[in-house]
């Protein structure tokens, strides 16, 4: 199973004991997110809504492109990086 990285927003570092970027083994984006939340359950409240979906205004990026919920089973390659980012709008 490939080793990948996943980075989380700065504001949520106190839910991961100060880690901003984590390494884990995951075959898909969905599996990576599941493992992240299993290892750091305090993140659940901030990332998921009551129905277990990614909160509004949050996006998961793979190699700079958003991963749509329908594409969450996309296969990951070794050393790819997922970013969880807060969407910002306005100016």
């Amino acid at each position: 199973m490939p080793q990948v990285s996943i980075s989380i927003p700065t504001l949520l570092q106190d839910c991961t004991k100060g880690q901003r970027r984590l390494r884990l083994e995951a075959a898909t984006a969905q599996e990576a997110l599941g493992k992240l939340l299993a290892e750091h359950p305090l993140l659940k409240f901030h990332l998921l809504d009551k129905e277990g979906k990614i909160r509004p205004h949050l996006v998961v990026l793979l190699e700079g492109l958003p991963v749509k919920p329908s594409e969450a089973d996309i296969a990951l390659s070794p050393d790819q990086e997922l970013h969880i980012m807060q969407a910002v709008s306005g100016g």
């Binding site: 927003p9 504001l11 949520l12 106190d14 839910c15 100060g18 359950p41 305090l42 409240f45 901030h46 990332l47 909160r55 509004p56 205004h57 949050l58 807060q86 969407a87």
Partner: peptide, 22 residues
């Protein structure tokens, strides 16, 4: 936070570190 919701955070070292209440 408008994205991350409302929770209680705790510090036992006078603000050097915070943890979210489980």
């Amino acid at each position: 936070h408008y994205v991350y919701g409302a929770t209680i955070r705790q510090s036992t070292d006078e603000g050097k570190t915070f943890t979210q209440c489980e």
